[in-house]
């Protein structure tokens, strides 16, 4: 297997992080880091498989023209609202949502819609709200927090659409299939 440049970046980050652990807590802390990583991988692999499959299946179901029309750069507020609603109902952890976002990117969605989708998934995702927030934090807190966050995915999408015109944020096209 070939190492790409981006693989090397992550290798360097892992070494730096491991060095920090060693410096702060010696071998036990490095071991704790390894244990945490192993545990995370176990949890994450089935989710990742599901996300990759969903991404592949969705790209077969919705054609490029349709995604571009619904979620592309010209989709306006409707595109951002649609993307936010889709993000809020996407279940699962980041390993499910990011492959879906990647598939939508390849299919012609623009950065603003993708960011609205991800922000909605992260902030007002129904799945997380029901499974974690409601039981742990209680109904009043959950209600206030959700209402306070409701407009934010669209705000983030609008800001992203403005920023993406700046040269440093110009997106390359998503890698083709």
């Amino acid at each position: 297997m070939n190492l790409t440049k981006s693989d090397l970046v992550f290798l360097a980050l892992a070494i730096v992080g491991g060095g920090f652990c060693w410096w702060q807590g010696g071998l036990p802390l490095v071991g704790a880091g390894f244990a945490e990583a192993g545990w995370l991988l176990m949890i994450v692999l089935p989710q990742l498989a599901a996300g990759l499959l969903m991404g592949g299946l969705i790209s077969r179901l919705v054609g490029r023209e349709k995604v571009a029309a619904l979620l592309g750069a010209q989709s306006g507020m409707r595109g951002l609202i649609l993307a936010s609603a889709a993000g809020a109902i996407t279940p699962g952890g980041p390993f499910t949502s990011f492959p879906i976002v990647h598939a939508l990117w390849v299919a012609g969605a623009d950065a603003g819609a993708l960011i609205a989708y991800l922000t909605a998934w992260a902030l007002i995702g129904l799945n997380r709200l029901i499974v974690w927030e409601l039981p742990l934090m209680g109904a009043e807190f959950t209600l206030i927090r959700t209402l306070a966050c409701l407009p934010l995915p669209i705000v983030a999408g609008l800001i992203a659409r403005a920023l993406v015109r700046l040269p440093i944020f110009t997106m390359r096209k998503a890698p083709a299939e």
């Binding site: 892992a14 920090f20 652990c21 807590g25 995370l40 498989a49 499959l53 991404g55 592949g56 077969r60």
Partner: peptide, 29 residues
Amino acid sequence: AGEMGFQQGRALAIRLPLAILAASFLMQV
């Protein structure tokens, strides 16, 4: 659809375990 998922997964095979390891180390400190 399966092939598209598999291609994307293969690109992540080295990167992801390293990324998760780096993040787990940072969590500790």
